[in-house]
Design a protein around this nucleic acid. Structure first.
Lengths: 343, 343
DNA sequence: TTGTATGCGTTATCAA
DNA sequence: TTGATAACGCATACAA
């Protein structure tokens, strides 16, 4: 089924059908109706490849996700879903591409095969070869996260440093004197993952600013690791009365370990951090935390990318989100008895 | 950068470059090397749209995911990741399409725009209009799940009925006399979601077969709903000593409610069901359950689809997976004191 | 208001 | 062993 067949059946030329569809040239009402009837009857849709070839754009964007081996976090998942949704709203298809590991071929296909009009790049590292590659290819892209260097690029990120700093100040205000940062996985930290390093930065700064004792640990992204990490912390760091974290997947384990140690939150121990809304609400008691606005980020990322595709030579914009910290019930005044953590 | 430019620089014709790339015609070694050098130097990749237009296939498959409003479960997430991975291995791109809600346009674009060579359809309902649409369009597809009617189609599914039946028998063997099935969300049950109805079917059959008292409840797909559901069950059904479930997202809440009620698993209460490996391992104690092999399903689904694309007129195959039930530690003999649940 | 003709980048047929 | 050329389906400049 192609445009010629529609034209033949409607008794008009191919260009008239094309113009009737695009509206870029006036078409007599009667003609238009005749064409539309045939289209409806046959369920015709223009061939995407032919259109892409002719127009020089694919109406498709690429979404580069972290490799499949590591499970995506809820936050990332919400993000993917909202990107797909926002793209659909703008009449854009979304091509998924894993990256990292042995998937360089897939990524290469995206950037050099004229497969997509632009790319959204998830999980950016402080030094990220993919960013260089995209820049070199001249393909419009938006990063979720930003690199360490200050070369201009278009990105949207959460201000992990600022938010973690904020949570530590909150803990200090409540009288806590010793706090731990439970960071993302050792692999991510080692690979220079931006949020992990920036969270560390914010933590270190706030701890110094307020004269707290601070300890930072990396932690696997699952409940079991969270539990072990907190068990270790409680054993090795007497006097610890609070945790802040950006590792949402560890939260159930953190909860479990505190419970096992006989610590009641927030009476005996305070927990806070940055997490997707649903994780914060699922904590018990509900977590005082900055809610990562994953859905909003997806929409904004698509909007930013559309903007860049339309005007690639414009100086790139970026957005640093600092969602407010929702005061829920997981933080409280430091316990009066210092040996509370002795369990 | 196109094939003509490569040809010009290598001093050959366009067809020679094409044949050097595809290997469908012998090319002199020297010529081939000259061409390859130019290609490597310029980083040329054939234009996907032009190739698709000429070949009549897109080397792209569509993955229709559940609507974004409802969060994907971990199992579904693992599945998506493994599909992308398997597709990349077969040199296929993956186009993501939400369905349901107001996304019919996106789905329509997929099926009638010659956008993809085939489709993987997630979360199939017992009656599913999308299946009819794909059949009518003559587009190869593989369902994750299968419809109620017995018209031939290609699918891969987990034998929820059989697995739940199996878990109930296991509970009966341990002496339990009253068990509950915690099903998926009310919305999914109401919409005729296959796994939910087939789990019910297996539960009802096994309960009747072994003469147990059985109660089935739908439950939202989050920890909070799981907790409330179990609280209600314990209150309304004295004598209840076991739960089986296919609602993995409710597991943390189930755990919490049992703990709050002072019940120790498996001494006072048994829990089992069907869940992704990671959920089962995260339960405490580890959940005796059938592990949904999401990664394997993704690979198989892609393999099945490739098979169908290659031979569309072949009678469709299907695969019903019945993973073994991993005996972990969450089920045990029925508590001797009947009023254990009164605690 | 509508029709004709061209070219997007590729693959494959035909000719040499 | 290689080159010239047609065709895939569409959008659009040009003609009428």
């Amino acid at each position: 089924m192609n445009i010629g067949e529609i034209a033949r059946r409607a008794g008009v030329s191919r260009s008239t059908v094309s113009y009737a569809l695009s509206g870029k040239r006036p078409v007599a009402a009667g003609t238009r109706k005749r064409i539309q009837d045939v289209i409806d009857e046959l369920g015709y849709r223009p061939n995407a490849a032919a259109r892409a070839l002719k127009e020089g754009r694919t109406r498709t964007i690429g979404l580069v996700i972290p490799p499949a081996g590591r499970r995506l976090s809820h936050m990332q998942l919400d993000f993917v879903a909202s990107v797909v949704e926002a793209a659909a709203g703008a009449d854009l298809d979304v091509l998924l591409s894993p990256s990292g590991g042995d998937h360089d071929r897939s990524f290469e296909g995206l950037v050099s095969g004229s497969r997509v009009d632009g790319v959204i790049l998830m999980e950016i590292r402080l030094e990220d070869a993919r960013v260089d590659r995209l820049r070199q290819a001249g393909l419009p892209f938006v990063g979720i996260g930003h690199t360490a260097d200050d070369r201009p690029m278009c990105w949207i990120d959460v201000d992990y440093a600022g938010l973690i700093r904020h949570t530590v100040r909150h803990l200090a205000d409540l009288g806590h004197r010793k706090a731990a940062l439970i960071n993302r996985s050792p692999e991510l930290v080692a690979s220079g993952y931006g949020p992990a390093l920036r969270a560390r930065e914010g933590f270190t700064a706030a701890v110094a600013e307020r004269g707290l004792a601070g300890v930072e640990v990396a932690c696997g992204e699952d409940a079991r690791s969270g539990q072990e990490t907190v068990e270790d912390l409680l054993r090795d760091h007497p006097g610890l009365t609070a945790i802040t974290t950006i590792n949402e997947a560890a939260l159930p384990g953190i909860q479990r370990a505190l419970g096992d140690a006989g610590l009641t939150v927030p009476r005996d121990f305070s927990v806070t951090g940055v997490a997707a809304h649903s994780w914060a609400e699922d904590f018990r008691p509900p977590l005082t935390a900055a809610d990562v606005p994953a859905l909003e980020m997806g929409q904004q990322a698509v909007a930013l990318l559309i903007e860049r595709i339309a005007a690639p030579s414009t100086p790139p914009r970026h957005i640093l989100l600092a969602p407010p910290i929702s005061l829920r019930s997981s933080t409280g005044a430091v316990p009066s008895r210092r040996d509370a953590t002795a369990g």
